[in-house]
Computed example of a mutant assay.
Amino acid sequence: MEQVLFIVWRESVEALLVVGILYSWLRAAPEGRRGLPYLWGGVVAGLALAVALALVLLGVSSWLSDEGQEWFQAIMSLAACALVVQMIVWMKTHGRTLKSELQSGANASLADNNWWGLLILVMIAVAREGSETVVFLYGTVSAVQGADIWKLTLAGSAGFAIALLTFGLLQLGGKLITWRRFFRLTEILLLLLASALLVGGLDRLISLGVLPTLVDPVWDSSALLDDSSGLGKVLADFAGYRAYPALTSVLLWVAYWIVVWALLRRADQPRKPAPIPA
C-alpha cells in the first residue's frame, strides 16, 4: 500500500507543478484569464485519457489466460521500471527550463489568440503524468497477491491529499523544503522502487521459464533479514531485496544501477547550445 501512496503523491505533485505554473501565469495577465477555462478543460481531458488507459489495461488483463496474465504483468512491471528511469532522466534534463518552456507555449497561445493550443498543452502534460501513474500502479499492484481494492483506493486518496499539502508547502518555499530537494529525494526513492519493479518482473519471467536462474539461490539471508515481513518486506517492496535471489536477478539488478548511473551522469552534463546558422 505504501508504494501506491508514494507513486500517487509524487506524480500528483508533478502534475500540480505544471498546472500551478500555467495558472499563475494566466492569473498574472488580464488577457490571460480568458484561458483559465481551457486550462481546466485540459486538466479534465488529461485525466480522462489516463482513466481510459487504466480501463484498457484492466480490460486486456481480464481477457488473458493465467499464463497470459503472468506475461502481461511481467511486461508491465518492466515497462514501469523503464518509464521511471526515462521520467527521471527527462526531469534531470528539462527540469531547469520546465517553467520557461511551459510559459513560452502559453505565450504562443496568447499571441495567436488560440486557447485550444493551451488546452492541448495542459492535456498532454496531465495525461503524461496520469499515464505514468497508471503504468506504475499497475506494475506495482500486479506484484501484490490478493490486494484489497479499498485499501489501494484509500492509499491513492491519501497520496493525492498529501500531494496537495506538499505542493502548498513547496509553493511557500523555505530552506528546509525546496523543489530541488524534493525532486532529489523522490528521484532516489523512485529509482529504488523501479529496481523493485525490475526484480518483480524478472521473478515472473524466471517462473515462466523465459530466463535461466544460473544459480538459485545465490545466498540465503532469511535468518538475518526475511523479505516477507518487517524491514525486509519494506526493502523488498521498495528496493527489490530478496532473501533467496537467483543469480540472474542479481546480475540484472547490478546492471540496472550501472545504466541508471550512466544516464544520470549524462543528463547532469550541461546541454550544448544549438549552433548559430551562418
Rank of each mutant, 00 (worst) to 15 (best):
F6V: 15
I7R: 01
I7K: 05
E14F: 02
V18N: 02
G35C: 05
G41T: 06
A48I: 00
G59A: 05
G59F: 10
G59L: 08
G59M: 14
W63V: 09
W63L: 15
W63K: 15
A74Y: 06
I75E: 05
S77T: 12
V84S: 11
K92Y: 01
T93K: 06
R96L: 04
S104K: 08
A106S: 08
A106Q: 10
N114Y: 08
L119W: 07
V122K: 10
V126R: 05
R128Q: 06
E129I: 03
F136P: 00
F136D: 02
Y138F: 15
S142G: 08
A143N: 01
G146S: 14
L152I: 14
S157G: 12
G159L: 02
L165T: 07
G168M: 11
G168K: 09
R180Y: 04
R180V: 09
F182H: 03
L193Q: 11
A196H: 02
A196G: 01
L202W: 05
R204F: 03
R204D: 05
L208C: 12
G209P: 13
L214Q: 05
V218S: 08
W219F: 15
D220W: 14
L225F: 14
L225Y: 13
S228Q: 12
G230M: 07
G230P: 10
L231H: 14
K233F: 07
V234I: 12
L235V: 15
L235M: 10
D237V: 12
D237Y: 02
F238P: 08
Y241E: 09
V250P: 06
L263I: 00
Q269C: 05
R271S: 11
P273V: 03
